[in-house]
């Protein structure tokens, strides 16, 4: 099932609706990379609120997704990891190091806006 990706100004929002197969994850990574390039997006939010489980393949793919998108000039934020999923992940040693996180979509967008402002002021 293809994950819907919405454009919100300079940002892209990918909302995961249900459990993702390995193929879905790879597809998402390719779609996002492509769209970031096409729209010159500055940030990407991947909303995993609907996910009950996060396995090692998903964690690895999300990390590589963030790294790839970074190379294309955009910052990624994973939002919506539920308490049970967060707990299970750390117990399994899946920590998503190097990937930014936020509580939900609202916090994620605030974070991206703040970063964009900082970049503009700095650069």
């Amino acid at each position: 099932m293809r994950v819907p990706i919405l454009k919100q100004g300079p940002f892209l929002i990918a909302s995961v609706q249900s459990a993702l197969t390995d193929e879905d994850l790879v597809q998402l990574r390719d779609d996002l990379t492509q769209m970031v390039g096409r729209h010159h997006s500055r940030g990407v939010i991947i909303d995993v609120t609907a996910l009950d489980v996060m396995d090692s393949f998903a964690a690895r793919t999300l990390r590589s997704m963030a790294a790839t998108i970074k190379l294309k000039g955009a910052h990624s934020i994973i939002v919506g990891i539920q308490p049970e999923v967060a707990f299970a992940m750390v117990q399994l040693g899946l920590s998503l190091t190097g990937v930014s996180t936020a509580l939900d979509l609202e916090d994620g967008l605030n974070l991206l806006s703040k970063q964009m402002k900082e970049n503009q002021n700095g650069g």
Partner: peptide, 12 residues
């Protein structure tokens, strides 16, 4: 340590 990491996954 695990508690702190889990909290980070939730943005805290």
């Amino acid at each position: 340590l695990q508690t702190a990491e889990a909290a980070r996954l939730m943005g805290a």
